[in-house]
């Protein structure tokens, strides 16, 4: 269980005043769950992810992973970034194997593991290519394989498909669901697309800005449906999907309106 308990984050504004980015957020991410944080920009969803990854200390509250307090970044929490962070001087295979190299795994073993993971994300034919030779979607798949290589306890994904075109984005969503179903990894995923959140999550948390807090939580099962039937169109055009989408849209808009009322 990754447990966030009453986590608050304050940043110092240029004036010296403390600005609250995260307000007493509590969240549990259980084994095999796929939690999606949904919200407009500035709602603190990236702040929450950075705190989980250990890039950002929290002002108060606690974050524990399987009972152990989360500190500095480490290989137990794999991160996939929105921006491509592959090392341009390493081949695709060596990029995927990077975490294993850091862990001291021998050349042969890490190459074998990297090829296996490239197969999982459908890039087995590109192991010798370099990142600059790949499209944006392919690079994100390499990033996913790289994060999986060290066998982390949880995957943290910060709007990984935000920069992709909508066709590629849907393909990537379906790929991610397969990877999730195959590996059984816990995933914490950030997006500002309601449809993406509904399609991917076993749980969707809706966040609202200034200060960032969770305003609604939904347990849903479209993703299990997809893992079973592999028919994305049927799910996304179903009445149940549309109904929930409109309900969440209303919540997101209300959160924004509330904010503009107080300004």
């Amino acid at each position: 269980m990754l447990r966030v308990h009453n986590a608050s984050v304050f940043f110092a504004a240029r004036s010296g005043a403390a600005v609250q980015a995260l307000d007493r957020v509590s969240l549990d991410i259980a084994e095999r769950s796929f939690v999606v944080a949904l919200g407009t920009s500035g709602c603190g969803k990236s702040t929450l992810l950075n705190a989980m990854a250990g890039f950002l200390p929290i002002s108060s509250g606690s974050i524990t992973l399987d009972g152990v307090a989360v500190g500095a970044p480490g290989a137990d929490r794999g991160v996939v970034f929105q921006k491509d962070t592959l090392l341009p001087w390493k081949s695709v295979r060596d990029n995927v194997a990077l975490g294993l190299k850091f862990a001291g795994v021998g050349r042969q073993e890490r190459d074998a593991r990297a090829l296996e993971l490239l197969g999982l994300v459908g890039l087995q034919d590109f192991s010798h290519a370099f990142p600059y030779e790949l499209s944006g979607g392919m690079r994100q798949r390499v990033g996913l394989a790289r994060a999986l290589a060290t066998d982390p306890k949880i995957l943290l994904m910060d709007e990984p498909f935000g920069a992709l075109d909508s066709m590629t984005r849907e393909q990537m969503q379906e790929l991610l669901v397969s990877v999730w179903a195959r590996t059984g990894k816990r995933i914490f995923f950030i997006t500002h697309s309601i449809e993406e959140a509904l399609f991917l999550g076993t749980k969707v948390i809706v966040m609202s800005p200034r200060p960032g807090r969770i305003v609604a939580e939904f347990d849903i099962d479209f993703v299990q449906q997809f893992a079973r039937d592999r028919d994305a169109r049927a799910i996304k055009t179903s009445p149940a999907f549309a109904e929930l989408r409109e309900e969440i849209r209303a919540i997101v808009h209300r959160a924004e309106n509330l904010e503009s009322d107080t300004v």
Partner: peptide, 29 residues
């Protein structure tokens, strides 16, 4: 050196020394 690249290496388990030899140095080359 972009901070995301450093963060990515750290969450792959890089030590300070590995971060230096495998990320900082080649990035500055």
């Amino acid at each position: 050196l972009p901070v995301e690249r450093v963060n990515a290496a750290l969450s792959l388990g890089a030590t300070r020394w590995q971060l230096f030899t495998d990320v900082v140095l080649p990035s500055a080359l």
